[in-house]
Nucleic acid binder design. Structure first.
Lengths: 242, 242
DNA sequence: CGAGAAGTTGAAGCGTGTCAAATGCAGTGG
DNA sequence: CCACTGCATTTGACACGCTTCAACTTCTCG
């Protein structure tokens, strides 16, 4: 799974080798389920890469309301940025048991300086994160509960498929309904009702902890899911115009 | 206004000079109010900087629902990224008459390569955009209509203050209620009612096209506005830890 | 002065939230 | 192996924030 790192960007064998080496030499960290990885206000000195497990980024209001602002799946970069910033404006926490590796910030900087294709790839990664965040804004702002959940499922499926963790319209789904509530901005009770609705319409169903997208085309259609915002499918295609 | 570009980052006189020169030599573009600047799907070849006016980034659903995912104010960079990407996943449009300058993408790349403090500053700028987008996600996901508008006003005031376009708790406010509706994900009618509520509570009021934040402390408090996510206030402070 | 856009208000309905209670399910210790 | 416990899921009833529709008023600007 390690080498899927920035795999969904466009890289050659050489760059993949460099990444592999970086991951191999980096320190591995293990977190149990539901553990804080990084809390608001802290100033981490390292960069982190997800190897296994699910985690999420969340923000909190003074009165306790919480909003998940994004998920981390295997292969994702956790904090492409934070080492520079004045302090975390949000928190990171694992959802399942999680494996990640830590790379010193300046070591990573060196690596970027030494290879411009890698540098571009990580820029790209950052931009995709931005694009995802915009799509979430649209999701929360304009879509109804039913569409929101459908859209989230489509996104997760697509992203997991990319790293080989989803195929045949199904995948391991470790989130609780309360988790989904936090991510979609609807109440846990209503998430439940909406899932029933999805089930009754033969769009999705759960078999144990596996989520099955029974009719993925119709699901994408009701969710108005357009995978372009994930900016995938350019593996091997070079981003050079100059 | 031009030199306020990345002013709210931490730069020395030398870098400001470079930016000034870049802006001075770049091509100026003028847009009337409510004009498309860049549409979904296009692949721009230039970078743009806002000199004057307000614009917004928006995404659209197939059935026409629209969501503003961010505002551009004077001094902001419009597309720090897009020249790399495979195609716009959203659109840009002016809200007021707008002045911006265009810089060739590779010219900009040269500039970044030649000055590492500038490079860092623009990285920072990108990260702040990400942080803002996350805050919007929180805003739409967890805050009620009343809080959402309050929060948006706080953000706009803070950002405008930074570039000298707001002070003494008031500023020029060119948006219509329909614009606010698009940004906050509530209906235009309800925006109207919510503004009335804000007025009745002596929190904000309009005098013509000027928005007055009558009790900014209480406004921040009801909005749970915490300016840290904008990562300002570090002018002059260097971002070097290594 | 006229016309279109923006703002305002009322009434009715629906999508979600909240509260509360019941059920199912997995892990723990006796 | 069976209570026991705690957590996730499920369901019902009711309340409320917000949307929708429609009409009216007020601004803005040619």
């Amino acid at each position: 799974v390690a080498r899927k790192l920035a795999n969904y960007l466009r890289l050659g064998e050489a760059e993949l080798g460099i990444l592999d080496r970086m991951v191999a030499t980096a320190r591995e960290r293990y977190f149990p389920a539901r553990a804080d990885i990084l809390r608001e206000g802290e100033r981490p000195r390292v960069m982190r890469f997800m190897l296994a497990g699910w985690a999420h980024r969340y923000k909190q209001l003074p009165d306790g309301r919480r909003q998940t602002v994004g998920y981390f799946l295997p292969g994702d970069v956790c904090d492409l940025h934070i080492p520079m910033m004045s302090g975390m404006d949000h928190s990171l926490a694992s959802l399942t048991p999680t494996v990640l590796v830590e790379v010193e910030h300046h070591e990573f900087e060196q690596l970027l300086k030494s290879n411009s294709r890698l540098e571009k790839a990580f820029w790209w990664e950052g931009l995709v994160n931005l694009a995802i965040q915009r799509e979430w804004t649209l999701n929360l702002g304009q879509r109804a509960a039913f569409e929101r959940l459908a859209h989230l499922f489509c996104e997760l499926y697509t992203r997991l498929e990319c790293v080989g963790l989803a195929s045949k319209n199904l995948f391991e789904f470790p989130l609780t309904q309360a988790d989904l509530a936090e991510a979609t901005g609807i109440s846990a009770v209503h998430v439940n009702r909406t899932l029933r609705e999805l089930r009754e319409q033969n769009l999705t169903k759960f078999i144990g902890k596996t989520l099955v997208l029974q009719d993925i085309e119709r699901l994408k259609s009701v969710a108005a899911f357009d995978a372009r915002y994930l900016h995938l499918g350019h593996v091997g295609e070079r981003a050079d115009d100059e």
